[in-house]
Amino acid sequence: MYEVKVYVMYKESILDPQGEAVKSAIHRLGYDEIQEVRMGKYFEMKVTKKEKSFIEKRIEEICDRLLANVTMESYQYEIMEAR
């Protein structure tokens, strides 16, 4: 079995109002060195083991179709052997 982690983030060009709000809260707590906060989504999946290139293709398909809206978001993923 594989463990797959998917991270979906707003693209750089898109203002992330939630990240901005969290950043101001961090500043209010006195952590002035924090310059930027961007907030995203994180998914964990357990995946039946098949050829890795096939799994990569499937994961990308799922991201493009459902997990990310590529108009405003980009994604990254990691595929690992399940422990």
Binding site: I14, L15, P17, Q18, N69, M72
Partner: peptide, 10 residues
């Protein structure tokens, strides 16, 4: 086309 994002004011 396009997308509806969270309101700017949150």
């Amino acid at each position: 086309p396009g997308v509806l994002k969270k309101n700017e004011s949150l």
